[in-house]
């Protein structure tokens, strides 16, 4: 019988405590971010898709077309090509495609690059209805960035 009264009285008390907690929360300010109106800032290490880094001196990509990123990538989503312009020693990048549909943002490519030629971008609000939109031409992107 005492268990019965425990249930009735203790139970009612626990319900009242619960109600008092939610009532207190009711008057506290909201904690959510109003996303489309307030845009979050990405942290320094945020992993967006990769992008090429420009060499400040020459204005060309730092990439020397060694292909380490391509070989290191677990999903084989990087394809690049380069050729030697006449009269120069080093190869120049002519194509750098990232297939973002299979990229898992692991960072293996960035780690395997010994020349610091690629980095994570801060782009996160990517949306599209077509798969082709996710095959990024990173060289073009670099040019567009100016």
């Amino acid at each position: 019988m005492s268990e019965y009264w425990n249930d009735v009285i203790g139970g009612s008390k626990s319900l009242l405590i619960g109600l008092s907690i939610t009532a207190r929360e009711f008057f506290k300010p909201v904690v959510t971010e109003q996303y489309p109106w307030v845009v979050p800032e990405m942290t320094e290490r945020f992993r967006g898709h990769i992008e090429l880094i420009k060499d400040e001196k020459t204005g060309k990509p730092k990439c020397i077309v060694c292909g380490m990123c391509m070989r290191g990538c677990p999903s084989g989503c990087i394809s690049l090509a380069g050729k030697k312009p006449e009269g120069e020693k080093k190869k120049a990048l002519t194509k750098y495609h990232l297939d973002f549909t299979t990229c898992s943002l692991c960072g293996t490519c960035i780690e395997s690059c010994n020349f610091g030629a690629i980095q994570f971008s801060k782009d996160y609000n990517l949306a599209s209805t077509r798969k082709e939109d996710y095959i990024f031409d990173l060289l073009k992107r670099l040019e567009e960035q100016g």
């Binding site: 290490r45 898992s104 943002l105 960072g107 780690e111």
Partner: peptide, 24 residues
């Protein structure tokens, strides 16, 4: 998640550990 994003760069599917240490 914000804290972990600071160090690992991602929020859910972390790829942070490396053989012999951590990414950064």
């Amino acid at each position: 998640l914000d804290l972990l994003e600071r160090v690992t760069g991602s929020r859910l599917t972390y790829c942070y550990f490396r053989f012999g240490g951590v990414y950064n």
